[in-house]
Design a protein around this nucleic acid. Structure first.
Lengths: 145, 145
DNA sequence: CCGCATCCCTATAGATACTG
DNA sequence: CAGTATCTATAGGGATGCGG
């Protein structure tokens, strides 16, 4: 660690170019499988994805388990610590909404929709949803590539 | 750009290990001079600092001007776009407050104090302060190294 | 198939010494 | 003072291999 500043602490844990995108995929697009993350439009490469998932797990943001039906499949899900990154993602989304003039409006929907939900129900609703997400199979929202 | 996701957009602009720390130094510790940034406890090196300040300026987060009294000195200050990163920093601070158990409590003060100010007066107060910061010489808060 | 691991190569980040 | 120059280290892309 470079310092014990709280901001620096966070940046060293998830302040890279990929971690929050993986969290985004899990929270907003219900992705849970390795190959699903590979399909995102940022085109993460396999070695980087494997490395990020490992360090995210090591640092307690993500947990791994084997699928009950297909035992060769691995399910990634968020811990509470990981879900608690959502308010940060939302603030970033608000900032991008203000300054990312070139961003197609429909691309902002997933995050702006979450802001509305968050304002009325709070992040608790999201936590409940995500904590059951690996038990109950949900219709996976299409990630609009 | 890897994609036009709003989150990715933001990450490509300031999602590195240094940019937000420089913003932190400007917002919370009133730093404005090149050498002041070098003194921060994370020990940024000169080339990285120069590079970050340049790209932060290019991307409209920071503006440069020459000091009126000492013309060889360059003053860095935040634009509105840069100040609007504060809510993001605050959310990160809240997260670190929850999960950074080992962080010395007094290290959290600068950000928790800002949260209180933000909740009562909002970020507007901060904006007014910072917009006059390069005109009115303020007692520079010591960055607690 | 699925989830990586490995290898190779390039690009960017960063430490240190030095300069206009 | 505010950076460059130079060199080194790490991150990352792409292809491929490999165990379960």
């Amino acid at each position: 660690m470079r310092s014990d500043c709280p901001l620096n602490y966070a940046l060293e844990l998830f302040g890279d170019k990929w971690s929050l995108l993986i969290i985004r995929d899990m929270v907003f697009f219900n992705k849970r499988y390795y190959h699903e993350f590979l399909l995102s439009e940022e085109k993460i490469s396999t070695n980087v994805l494997a490395n990020r998932l490992l360090t995210l797990e090591k640092n307690g943001f993500v947990k791994k388990e084997k699928s009950l039906d297909h035992k060769q499949k691995i399910i990634y899900s968020l811990t509470e610590k990981g879900i608690d990154l959502v308010p940060i993602i939302i603030e970033i989304g608000l900032w991008s909404d203000k300054y990312g003039d070139h961003i197609p409006p429909h691309k902002k929907d997933f995050i702006l929709k979450e802001i509305r939900v968050n304002k009325t129900n709070g992040i608790q609703t999201l936590k409940k949803e995500l904590h059951t997400a690996h038990n109950v199979q949900k219709n996976t929202d299409k990630h609009s590539d």
